[in-house]
Simulated scan of single mutants.
Amino acid sequence: MPQIITIFVTVFLAELGDKTQLATVLFAADRQTTPALVFLAAAGALVASTALAVLLGTAAERYLTMIPLKLIAGIGFVLVGGWTIVDHFRSAAGA
């Protein structure tokens, strides 16, 4: 049971304030869309993307046992962060 709590809290905190949540807030603020529809669509999208992540993680663990997956994930986060910073400065320079 402690594992499920750890996973829940980690994912919940990681999702707070991210772009997906902000997009959901914007959809919910649209008066033409019902809150229930926004919730169902956003929840379905999160479930589908999580299912894909679990499938990919399971396959990666099976086929990439020599490579530490946490290292790969960390490098991926650093690359995405670097790309986001570069994109920010490119957008600021063009504005």
Rank of each mutant, 00 (worst) to 15 (best):
A42V: 07
G57E: 00
Y63V: 09
Q21C: 10
V80Y: 06
V25M: 11
P35E: 07
S49M: 10
F39D: 04
L71V: 13
V25P: 01
A73W: 11
F8N: 03
L56I: 14
G76T: 08
V78I: 15
D18C: 09
I85Y: 10
I67Q: 06
T20E: 04
E15Y: 11
G81I: 12
V38Q: 02
A41K: 09
G82A: 14
F8D: 01
A45W: 03
A48D: 05
T84V: 07
I7S: 02
G82R: 05
D30P: 05
T65M: 04
Q21R: 06
V38D: 02
A48V: 12
F8G: 05
L37S: 12
G44M: 10
T50D: 01
I75G: 05
A48L: 11
V78M: 12
A28S: 14
T65C: 01
T50C: 00
P68M: 10
L56C: 14
R62V: 06
T34L: 05
L26F: 13
V25N: 00
Y63H: 13
A59V: 15
A45M: 05
A53E: 07
T6V: 14
L46M: 13
K70S: 13
A36E: 13
T58P: 00
V78T: 11
A29E: 12
A23R: 09
G81W: 03
A42G: 03
I85R: 02
T6I: 14
A53H: 04
V78L: 14
V25G: 00
L22A: 08
A73V: 10
L52G: 01
A48G: 02
E61T: 15
A51Y: 08
R62D: 04
Q32L: 01
T65N: 06
K19Y: 04
V38C: 07
S49V: 12
R62W: 11
T65G: 11
L37M: 12
A36T: 14
L55D: 03
G74R: 02
F77N: 07
G57Q: 08
L16Y: 08
G17Y: 01
I7N: 07
L52R: 06
L26E: 08
I7E: 05
F77M: 13
G74H: 03
D18T: 03
T33F: 15
G57P: 01
T10F: 10
G57S: 03
A29P: 05
T24H: 01
K19E: 13
T6W: 01
L64V: 07
V80D: 06
I5E: 12
E15F: 11
L52K: 07
V80I: 14
S49I: 13
I72F: 04
G17M: 02
T34D: 07
F8W: 14
T10V: 13
V25F: 09
A45R: 08
T65R: 12
I67V: 15
T10K: 06
K70R: 12
T10N: 09
G74K: 00
Q32W: 06
A36M: 08
F77C: 13
G74W: 00
A53F: 11
V38P: 01
L64H: 05
L55R: 03
F77V: 15
L71H: 08
T20Q: 11
L69V: 07
I85A: 13
